[in-house]
Nucleic acid binder design. Structure first.
Lengths: 195, 195
DNA sequence: TAATTGATTGTCATTATTGACAGTAAAGCA
DNA sequence: TGCTTTACTGTCAATAATGACAATCAATTA
């Protein structure tokens, strides 16, 4: 009754990672099926079998990037300690391990650039970004309950902006001291909340 | 002795603006000659006449984007008042007029993404970015001579990162209050220098 | 073993894009 | 008017990429 077992999920992950990598490097239009196949170590028809045509491919990509973002945030937040959460958060965001996922951010940037023409995509990117900032804001508020919302939101926005900037500039291989500058600024922003 | 007068410079500007616009929207590979022509209101062969083949085109683009960045910075700095320069700088950076040039930043982002594979390009983008931050730092130092260099550099880095983030996220058409948040954070960073 | 289901591959026509070249038009000067 | 220089256009072969379909392989169950 049943046939060959599906490996759809693992293949999907494998293909998606290759896709993200290619889009990060060559942009949405520059990511050729052949390149994706090469990156994934698979054949072109197989990629197409899993991803469908180009339009569907972009749909899968947005779904993947956005959902991964959201779940990455929740896991990061759940990994925070009980006290000094905001400091720990900033340390996680600007540690090497977190910055080692720049392809994701670059792919996200490619999507946002295209969002000019696509209202749906724009809405998705926007809510994704806002929920990221909101998650940060929530943690900040826990540590600083007496600070008013605007300052909390502004600080969260600043930390998010710094994170995106540092991460999306990873291809430039900036000198090491520049990276630590971003972390320093983020901590300064946290200090401001203690006044 | 002399022939038809050249309009190379004006055409060059016209073509370049169309190119920047297309690259901002569709990425480096997605910017088709036909699209550029359509955007510029010219014919495809004419575009090719001025830009040469694709490789040369990218060369022209980097030259254009980077030089415009540098000269935009110098003009902005020369437009600053005598006193309270750092505050005025932040206001200029986050005013509507400055943010109305997001295509430039998006094109720059496309170039940086490709810089992974191209050492020359990487070096150019890097120095361009660093000189931007240095220009900011110089102004900050004028207003706060007693603050040590690391804090100055960190603040300059933060302001630059905020600017890039806000500008490159322009396609998302963020709600108005979010934009003012970035400006607020930048001013907060300035306040920190007064301790 | 046969059947079934899905993964994987091979192949090809269609299309889009490029690169190149020859040729035409326009604008200045002798 | 003729000459020269540059802008601009038309056209076409070559290439790269896509989309689609048929065919084959692999794994599981009856």
């Amino acid at each position: 009754m049943a046939g060959r077992p599906t490996n759809r999920d693992e293949r999907y992950l494998q293909v998606m990672q290759a896709l993200v990598r290619c889009v990060a490097r060559f942009g949405l239009e520059g990511a050729t099926l052949t390149q994706i196949a090469k990156e994934a170590g698979l054949t072109r028809p197989l990629i197409r079998h899993h991803l469908g045509n180009r339009e569907e491919m972009i749909g899968y990509l947005t779904e993947f990037v956005i959902s991964r973002f959201s779940e990455q945030n929740t896991t990061m937040i759940s990994a925070l300690p009980k006290q000094e959460r905001s400091t720990a958060l900033v340390q996680m965001l600007f540690s090497e391990s977190a910055v080692s996922a720049p392809d994701m951010v670059l792919a996200f940037a490619s999507l946002t650039a295209r969002a000019t023409d696509d209202a749906d995509l724009r809405a998705k990117c926007r809510t994704s970004l806002l929920s990221f900032e909101d998650a940060i804001a929530k943690i900040l508020r826990d540590d600083h309950p007496s600070v008013d919302d605007i300052r909390i939101d502004a600080t969260a926005h600043g930390i998010a902006a710094l994170y995106f900037n540092v991460t999306s500039l990873a291809p430039l291989a900036m000198p090491e001291n520049r990276k630590s500058l971003a972390s320093l600024v983020a901590h300064n922003l946290l200090e401001d909340l203690k006044d």
